[in-house]
Simulated assay, not measured.
Amino acid sequence: MSLVSVLGSAVLPVVAVAVVGYALGRTRDVAVEPLSDITLYVLAPALVFYSLVTSPIAGPTVARLFGGVIAFVVGMVALAELVGRGLGEEEPTLGALVLSSTFSNAGNYGIPLSAFAFGALGRSTAVLFLVAQNVLMYTVGVYVAARGEAGSTRGALVRVFRLPLIYAVAAAAIVRATDAAPPTDTALMETIRLTGDAAIPVMLLMLGIQLANSGGGTPVARTMPASTLKLIVAPVFAAVIALGLGLTGTVGKVFVLECAMPAAVTPLMLTIEFGSDGFEEGLSAADYVSTTILVTTLASLVTLTVLITILQSGLVL
C-alpha cells in the first residue's frame, strides 16, 4: 500500500474528526472535562468489555502483549531518564520529558487509527494495549510526576482501582473464562457495542479540543528530545520488544503502532495534579508536556503514515 493510500484510508479519517474538535475548541468555549468523564466512566468501559469478550486474541497472546507494554514503558522511562540527565535537565522538566516520551496517545488517537489500519482485530489489540498502559500510567506515571512530593504517590493504586476500565477488564475476563458471553446479536451485547462504538468519535473530538486548548508555552526546540524519543526511538524499541516476545502478525503490528503514537494527554493531567509547582528557568512542566503533545501530534501525520506503510507491507513482524 502506498503512502498516499495509507494517508487517505487510515490517517486522514482520524485527523478529520480531530480537526472538527479543534475547530470547535477554537470557536466555542467547550469544556472537555464532561466529555472526559463520559468517555472514562461509560463509553470506554463498554468499548473495553465488548472488545475483550468478542476478541479472537488467545490468552497467551494477551499475556505477551501485556508483557510487551510493561517492557516498553519500563525501558522508555529508563532511556528518557538517561537522555534527560545527559542533557542536564532537572525537575520538573526532567519528569515532563520522561512522561511525554514514554506514554502514547493510545486511546483517542491509537484506537481509531488501529481500527482504520488493521480492522476489528486491530481495534481489539489497541484496546488491550490501552488497558495495560493505563495501569502503568497511573502507577509508574504518577510516581514520575510526583517524585519528591511527599504523600503524592500513595494514592496511585487507589486511583487505579477507581478506574471503571479495570472492572470492565475483570468482568470480561470472568465472562470469557466461564464461556458465559451472550451472543453478539442479543439486545444486551448490541447495546454495549453501540455504547462502545461511540467512544471512538468522542475520543477524537476530545483530542482536537485538547489541542485547541493547549498552551504551547514552551519553545518547540526545547521539546525536540522528547519528540524524537516518542516518534522515532519508541517504534524501533517496540519492534525489538515485539520480535523478542514473539508478537507477530496484526497483534505485533498494532503493538508497534500504539507505541509510536504521539504523546498522551493524560501525562499533562498527571503533571498538573501530582507534580511540583516549581519552574526551571521560567519553564513549567505543564508547558513542556502540552507543547510536546502538540508537536508530536502534528509530526505524527508523517511518521505514522510511513510506519503504517512499513507495517502493512510485511517488511517487519
Rank of each mutant, 00 (worst) to 15 (best):
82 L>H: 14
220 V>R: 15
213 N>Y: 11
7 L>T: 07
183 P>M: 05
13 P>A: 02
110 G>D: 07
24 L>F: 09
224 M>P: 13
173 A>R: 00
50 Y>R: 07
35 L>I: 10
235 P>V: 01
196 G>L: 04
12 L>C: 08
250 T>A: 04
66 F>H: 08
305 T>S: 03
207 L>D: 06
21 G>Q: 01
295 V>W: 01
316 V>W: 03
76 M>V: 05
182 P>N: 09
159 R>T: 15
300 S>N: 00
235 P>C: 03
245 L>T: 04
131 V>Y: 07
69 V>T: 05
194 L>V: 12
278 G>N: 11
34 P>Y: 07
72 F>A: 02
183 P>W: 07
234 A>W: 01
25 G>E: 06
223 T>W: 01
234 A>R: 03
258 E>P: 03
199 A>E: 07
264 A>Y: 05
23 A>F: 13
130 L>W: 15
209 I>K: 10
309 T>R: 15
129 F>M: 10
308 I>A: 01
231 L>G: 02
260 A>Y: 01
189 M>D: 00
264 A>N: 06
212 A>V: 05
211 L>I: 09
31 A>T: 14
241 I>M: 01
82 L>D: 10
282 G>D: 08
15 V>S: 06
290 S>A: 11
212 A>G: 09
193 R>N: 04
267 P>V: 08
95 G>C: 03
305 T>D: 00
137 M>N: 11
210 Q>K: 09
76 M>K: 04
86 G>K: 11
161 F>L: 11
17 V>T: 03
286 A>M: 05
178 T>K: 13
199 A>K: 01
232 I>H: 13
283 L>F: 15
198 A>T: 07
108 N>Q: 14
162 R>C: 08
106 A>E: 10
9 S>G: 14
4 V>P: 15
209 I>A: 12
251 V>I: 09
146 A>S: 11
236 V>S: 12
316 V>M: 06
245 L>E: 06
14 V>H: 04
6 V>Y: 03
47 L>S: 00
103 F>E: 04
30 V>G: 00
103 F>H: 04
108 N>M: 15
68 G>R: 03
257 L>I: 05
211 L>E: 13
226 A>Y: 09
97 L>S: 07
81 E>I: 14
195 T>K: 02
285 A>N: 02
261 M>P: 02
41 Y>C: 12
172 A>M: 04
311 L>Q: 03
278 G>S: 10
142 V>P: 04
112 P>N: 04
32 V>M: 10
143 Y>S: 14
268 L>C: 06
63 A>H: 12
101 S>L: 06
127 V>W: 04
79 L>A: 08
33 E>M: 14
218 T>C: 14
89 E>R: 11
140 V>A: 15
10 A>K: 01
81 E>Q: 15
195 T>H: 04
179 D>L: 11
231 L>K: 03
171 A>P: 03
111 I>V: 10
86 G>D: 14
162 R>A: 14
129 F>A: 07
72 F>N: 05
260 A>F: 00
14 V>F: 00
265 V>H: 09
139 T>I: 12
7 L>S: 10
268 L>D: 06
128 L>C: 11
101 S>D: 07
60 P>T: 06
87 L>Y: 09
8 G>R: 12
283 L>K: 15
213 N>C: 13
267 P>E: 03
157 L>N: 14
155 G>T: 08
117 A>T: 02
127 V>C: 05
248 T>E: 12
90 E>W: 15
72 F>Y: 12
